[in-house]
Design a protein around this nucleic acid. Structure first.
Length: 317
DNA sequence: GCGTCCAGGTCTACC
DNA sequence: GGTAGACCTGGACGC
């Protein structure tokens, strides 16, 4: 579907802010869709606001200490002034431009695990997914599955049920809406996207969002604990998935990351990682407090360097 | 080639 | 409230 330019503007994030590290993380995670494109200092992507798909061209035109982001918004129909303001809020929330990281960097200065990593990735902000449903699909497809299959499932969902949007000379594939999946038979999700038992989860989540559930923006306005509990009322969303999806990211330990944090916090990989998750989360909370989510994202995006520093390979789990 | 195990969890039934 | 067992699928591994 072709999208036309509707409006442009600029954001001035709090310093330090590294646009590239924030939207295109070293570990490979995307900002909004796995098919977005990043070149030089520019991101072409798609996000959805209400029922409107938005093509987004985001350019970093500033520096780490004087950050500035130029944005161009593309859509299939005219956008009113009120909605423009809401879209700018969506960008500020998802890019975390108003988040002051000075307390995190002060904490990291005296923390042996974070010290070098925080310096190396200075200005990287954590994850705040633009759209709730796509983040929930990611969380569900990561459950009980090797990464290859998770990626295959996500790609199939986008191929079979999503849409492609054209703007600014780019063609970007994007996630289906929850309305679309709510009206798709479970059998189609199972067969076309190879989702297995997760098909029922995704269908039920889509139905819940279709009925009455807070938007990502509304979750962002809640206290983190309230947002986490609300997410866990969705069928198929447990503690891990809720913490992966919640605005600003919780501390979503799974088998893989439990092995890594087991080594970093206790000196050795846990023998039973799944059983040790509660204890590791508690240790992380005690050590990093409200910045545990940032510690999580910084560590997992710097595994190669941390491995060299501690003399243990954290990249092979 | 075949059987078993297990993976970037969650739900349900049962105690 | 605590906890086995089931759940799709497919790659890795042992035999």
């Amino acid at each position: 579907m072709p999208l036309k330019k509707q409006f442009s503007g600029e954001l001035k994030p709090l310093s330090p802010y590294n646009f590239k590290l924030t939207v295109s993380k070293p570990a490979g995670w995307w900002w909004s869709t796995p098919f977005e494109e990043f070149e030089e200092n520019t991101l072409w992507t798609v996000a959805r606001f209400d029922d409107t798909a938005l093509g987004l061209k985001l350019l970093s035109v500033g520096t780490l200490k004087r950050p500035q982001i130029e944005f161009h918004v593309f859509a299939s129909k005219k956008i009113g002034n009120e909605k423009k303001g809401q879209i700018i809020n969506l960008l500020e929330r998802s890019l975390l431009t108003k988040q002051d990281l000075s307390d995190f960097y002060s904490l990291a200065e005296d923390d042996q695990i974070l010290k070098e990593t925080a310096q190396r990735l200075c200005g990287m902000h954590t994850v705040s997914w633009p759209e709730l449903f796509s983040a929930l699909i990611l969380a569900v497809t990561l459950q009980m599955s090797p990464m290859k299959r998770s990626n295959d499932m996500m790609n199939s969902i986008i191929d079979e049920f999503g849409q492609t949007f054209s703007f600014d000379g780019k063609r970007i594939r994007y996630w289906p809406s929850f309305e679309k999946i709510a009206s798709t038979p479970v059998r189609d999700l199972e067969r076309k996207a190879n989702l297995g038992y997760r098909a029922k989860f995704i269908k039920k989540i889509a139905q819940s969002l279709n009925d009455d559930f807070p938007t990502m923006n509304e979750l962002y306005m809640m206290e983190p604990e309230e947002a986490r509990k609300k997410l866990m009322t969705l069928h198929g969303i447990g503690e891990y998935s809720a913490e992966l999806v919640m605005p600003g990211m919780g501390f979503p330990l799974d088998i893989w990351s439990a092995k890594i944090f087991g080594i970093l916090l206790n000196g050795e990989a846990p023998k039973n990682p799944r059983e040790d998750i509660p204890e590791l989360k508690s240790a992380a909370q005690k050590r990093w407090g409200k910045w545990a989510g940032y510690a999580f994202v910084y560590v997992l995006n710097d595994l190669e360097n941390i491995s060299k520093r501690i003399g243990k390979d954290l990249t092979s789990f």
